[in-house]
Design a protein around this nucleic acid. Structure first.
Lengths: 342, 342
DNA sequence: CAACAAATTGACAGCGCTGTCAATTTGTTG
DNA sequence: CAACAAATTGACAGCGCTGTCAATTTGTTG
């Protein structure tokens, strides 16, 4: 009932090896032969058996998504994008949620990917930002593609899909400046995250471009959490805080922090955006569900993931070389949490 | 480097077939032999090659999670639980996000699972609530386990993991009644969802137990969305609405609706919980990030999913029979969005 | 202890592919 | 068109398991 490579071979009058060649896009097949085989493949709706492929070949047709991220929407989007690429290219996806803080996590992951004969890894932060980890994986001849924050790849270890948080953060800050704000606070995420650093750089660059002096009292070193947003906003807006250090706008490093800042503002009876503008970053689904709805920056995560997985699969198939790096710039989404300075 | 079944056979002095028997927990192996093999397996850290298993056997060692759910946190939890069970039992997981409304979706799914030789399916709503779909899958001799709302399986088609939303909804409503509320509104999700029906039944049962007459003007037929919560609360709390039809508490069918109701209350300058209590359902992560934080009901989704997958794998291994149904009751989580009637 | 049934074990084929290497075909040169 | 190189194709083994069925071992009976 399900067509095998034998059926295709018979129908197209070639050997199974040639069918195999066509299925794997190998170069040394005549165009005419290729077309005959492809016609048979279409007619029989043939799809190669992944188990057999994995067993027979030295190559593997499995890639893995190794992640440690509390943001379910991000993870799902990544997954959906990676799955799309896998389906198109006849690859399998192994999902590996894990705890990057766990002892021996590197060896654990290596064990898992060896076990499953994984050919490549899609990495997102924090794994993608750990060069030692990436190095270790690549030494095992496992391909890697990294999704990370920045405008260009930090090294030549692997192809990267860069998300230009810096430019996006600059745009957001500029949006606040355009609204008339001058005292703009920044609540940072974990300092060791590239995204924090990049977003901060964008913030600083926007200030500089507009000749606004940076006030270090407006910088809160927080973390990517709701609570951190609450604490940060409380500290900034407290009446104990000097008037000059109380901002008229807060750029939060992500939407969760922004939601926290919103929450704190409620507690302090500060009206948003009349008395204070708050911007987030990420365009997570709940950024539409806060009150007021958050101004933020949107990243096309599914597309980013799909692109990353395609690059990875290309690597594995050796059709593409290593310096295949692409860049995405998150786009400003203006909603109700930011308004004119008054 | 990686141990194969041959290595284990040699080390333990038996044939590979016997090792295979031990690995698959087949009965007709002497205890002594079994132990010898298990010792060798442990020493060599042997794990069967999934590709070879899938290729050689008529059985498959792959299960799939077919879902269509906009709630990423739910999906991720399901996935993590299912993955845990798979890892423990040496199964592979195929993830299949899809659109249940799409034409020919049933055939599409069947195609995919045939293609991947999937042995069983974990189904969550809406798929688990579609008997025709379940029937169709089972006819293909593919095992199914359904996760669904209710206190007992609706039929004998497959084992079910039941989530007793009815009891949980009754508990939430009772909580509101205990706070002194009598005019308790109910904003429903999609009427065709079992969860809506069950939660509604729990609500009604609590009213009845407390001799509170049901007022149909307090019932809003909504859907599981933030906007529906906004609309529902506006309609209920509007000053155009008769005083007697304005509730002092709203039980929202899920947290998203509750978040919407919270949002609408802000717009109408209604203080929560002083002037209005609002309860949600699901304990989604953002229920801790609303203002005020939502009172809700928590379901142990990871555990539910793991249990479901274990039952499914048991089915496939034929170790368990079909009537293996278990039940979970979501627990009340009291936070700040509900308060004493005043 | 013979005779048999039941329990346990193993030999061998084969799942559907890919890798290797040899055979064949095609194209190019003088 | 011979002679050769390059491109294209195919034969066959083998990946690591499981299924089938036969062989062997164990246990039971009179």
């Amino acid at each position: 009932m399900k067509a095998t490579i034998n059926d295709v071979a018979k129908l197209s009058g070639v050997s199974i090896k040639t069918v195999s060649r066509v299925m794997n896009n190998e170069p040394s097949v005549r165009q005419l032969t290729r077309e005959k085989v492809q016609a048979a493949v279409k007619e029989l709706n043939y799809q190669p058996n992944l188990a057999a492929r994995n067993l027979a070949g030295t190559k593997s047709y499995t890639i893995a998504y190794v992640y440690d991220n509390p943001n379910a929407y991000y993870v799902i989007d990544m997954q959906v994008g990676i799955l799309e690429a896998c389906r198109q290219q006849g690859f399998e996806l192994l999902i590996n949620p894990c705890d990057s803080q766990q002892e021996n996590i590197t060896e654990d992951i290596i064990n898992t990917i060896k076990q499953a004969r994984v050919a490549g890894l899609v990495l997102t932060p924090p794994f993608s930002e750990n060069p030692a980890f990436v190095q270790r994986i690549i030494e095992l001849d496992i391909k890697v593609v990294r999704i990370m924050s920045g405008d260009s790849a930090p090294d030549e270890l692997s192809p990267c899909v860069m998300v230009n948080d810096r430019d996006a953060a600059q745009t957001i800050t500029q949006h606040l400046i355009d609204l008339g704000h001058k005292k703009i606070a920044f609540i940072a995420g974990e300092a060791e995250h590239m995204s924090t650093i990049e977003r901060y750089k964008g913030y600083r660059r926007a200030l500089k471009h507009n000749n606004i002096e940076f006030n270090k009292n407006l910088l809160i070193e927080g973390e990517y959490s709701f609570d951190s947003g609450v604490q940060g906003a409380k500290q900034l807006m407290s009446t104990n805080n000097l008037e000059e250090n109380r901002p008229s706008a807060i750029f939060s490093c992500n939407d969760e922090i922004a939601a926290g800042a919103l929450f704190a503002s409620r507690l302090m009876d500060i009206n948003i955006p009349e008395q204070l503008s708050i911007a987030g970053f990420e365009n997570s689904p709940f950024s539409r569900q806060t009150w007021p709805k958050l101004t933020t920056a949107n990243q096309p995560n599914i597309e980013i993931a799909k692109n990353a997985a395609s690059i990875l699969i290309g690597q594995i198939r050796k059709k593409q070389n290593c310096n295949n790096t692409s860049q995405y710039v998150p786009q400003l989404v203006i909603r109700d949490s930011t308004g004119k300075y008054s």
